[in-house]
């Protein structure tokens, strides 16, 4: 895997996010399980800046208006291993079929939660 400037930027941002989150709660016990969930929680969609495990900004706004019409907001991974909300990414690829983080041509590797 080759490292690019874009990758480095992304990593710094994640570290920033992680340090912000740290202040919000304290961990009584530091074990492997907590480490794992930590990583997942800090994976933020670079388009709407909401964690990918939560619904995207758009879906959150919609479900506020109609709490029963909540759509399933899934995560999409590209061949480059970057992940975004499917909702966010599908809007962007209409304009430019490249990953916003690494500029590689976008192709979907997998989708899910």
């Amino acid at each position: 895997m080759s490292a690019s400037i874009a990758d480095e930027n992304e990593n710094t941002e994640r570290l920033d996010d992680a340090s912000k989150n740290e202040k919000m709660f304290t961990l009584k016990k530091w074990n492997a399980v907590a480490m794992w969930s930590w990583d997942v929680e800090c994976d933020t969609c670079a388009i709407c800046r909401v964690q990918v495990m939560d619904a995207c900004l758009r879906c959150q706004a919609e479900s506020k208006k109609d709490s029963y019409g909540k759509q399933d907001c899934v995560v999409v991974w590209g061949e480059c291993n970057h992940s975004f909300h499917y909702c966010c990414m599908s809007l962007w690829v209409k304009q430019n079929n490249r990953c916003p983080l690494c500029q590689q041509e976008w192709s979907i590797q997998r989708m899910g939660k």
Binding site: A6, A46, I47, C88, W92, N96, R98, P100, L101, Q103
Partner: peptide, 10 residues
Amino acid sequence: SMDGLGWSPI
């Protein structure tokens, strides 16, 4: 833009 320097939602 196709060069990676243009606008991107990030």
